[in-house]
Design a binder for these strands. Structure first.
Lengths: 153, 153
DNA sequence: CATAATGGTTATGGATAGTACCTAAATTCA
DNA sequence: TGAATTTAGGTACTATCCATAACCATTATG
């Protein structure tokens, strides 16, 4: 039985198809990278933004990560139970929590950041520095292509 | 209450983060584009590859789409029930099915392809033709970055 | 003080992707 | 030929990701 080659030319010309395939590959690799630390793509992203913006609130974090608030709750529950973050009460607003990394969370984040750095370099090893930056810039423009910017009142 | 800006600089330098954000945006838009036709990203991709390779078998389609066989079954069941594809028996191998579009499936695929074409143009409207092609090429290199190519026996 | 808006949560569902396992049929090989 | 293995398709189940609706407590608005 000959393994005849299947073509997908009509899909290959779509940016979205290339995006999907590349993302699947990257996601599988980054999850494998983070699994030993008990993290996933989303929980690592959460740690990174908390590390960079200590004291931010959950809704701000959800906004920064472009996810809905309910989805963040589960992620933060997990990180909190494992002692990587704390939800401090905000004195001025008793509804809100101020998110911070614990010392342990900071250490885990540093380890994870190094691992993700290596992962990212590996995934983009076929690109020059210029190509890599151009691609990131292009992706950013795609991300905001259909973001209806409503003018501030 | 001032809306303080949350930064994600440490994540923005990762190609994978840009990829994830762009993909989420594109996926939401393409699903909204295909919803009126009763299709999703995956079922549209399946139609496209079947249209381009009439008579191919399910395992070949799964391989072309880089998904596992069980996940394809549900997609094909749906397309078959709606009369968009047929599973013809292969005389030379009674285990296998030859996948083909019906006339109706061909028409729906043409409509969907036009809609996706417009969607893709909209998503990449912020890019020049050269930038767009460079990005697609870069994404392809990322996709295959960690694909261990095992030499044929 | 009544109403609306906000922060966080719960519950739920859809889309995606993976593994384990089953059957029928084809292939390999002793 | 006949047993063991492989392959094609399918079933069942699970995990992740992301979204919406509805809810409670608190704060802001009028």
């Amino acid at each position: 039985m000959e393994k005849q080659v299947i073509s997908d030319t009509s899909l290959r010309c779509f940016a979205g198809y290339a995006l999907k395939r590349a993302f699947n590959s990257v996601q599988a690799d980054v999850n494998a990278t983070l699994a030993p630390l008990g993290l996933r793509m989303l929980s690592f992203s959460a740690l990174a933004v908390i590390a960079e913006n200590p004291g931010l609130r959950q809704s701000q974090l959800a906004g920064a990560l472009s996810i809905e608030r309910p989805n963040l709750v589960i992620v933060l529950d997990d990180l909190e139970q494992r002692g990587l973050i704390v939800r401090d009460r905000v004195p001025s607003d008793r509804r809100a929590y101020a998110l911070r990394l614990t010392d342990d969370g900071g250490r885990v984040y540093q380890l994870a950041a190094s691992a993700v750095q290596a992962h990212d370099a590996r995934m983009t090893s076929g690109l020059s520095k210029v190509e890599r930056l151009a691609m990131i810039d292009a992706l950013r423009r795609i991300e905001t292509a259909n973001t209806k910017e409503q003018p501030d009142g």
